[in-house]
């Protein structure tokens, strides 16, 4: 269940980005997820709403793009 820490890491990146780029809500988070990343889409989807509760990414949809490496990163966000 280290996906919870990964989600907290995602939120730190998103919050930093929000301070810099000034958006108030995140509607979609697009994640690149490698076969060898050690993380699973199901767990990330399970943990993210819990970690995001009460913040700017609460209720955000998640989209995943699969790769065949160790990738584990946020590609982009839909924001308003």
């Amino acid at each position: 269940m280290h996906e919870m820490s990964l989600c907290e890491g995602m939120l730190r990146i998103i919050e930093k980005k929000a301070q810099k780029d000034g958006f108030r809500r995140v509607l979609t988070v697009r994640v690149e997820l490698g076969d060898y990343s050690g993380a699973s889409e199901e767990s990330l989807r399970f943990c993210f709403p819990v970690a995001a509760k009460g913040g700017i990414a609460e209720g955000a949809e998640m989209e995943f793009v699969y790769t065949h490496d160790r990738a584990l990163r946020i590609i982009d966000l839909d924001v308003v």
């Binding site: 890491g9 990146i13 958006f23 509607l27 584990l72 946020i74 982009d76 308003v80």
Partner: peptide, 24 residues
Amino acid sequence: HHDDHPDRAAARVLKVEEDILSVN
């Protein structure tokens, strides 16, 4: 319900390209 979200039409895409483990 996501597609019906009133904010969605106003949404912009923001590039991030950042490793989730970058802080660690």
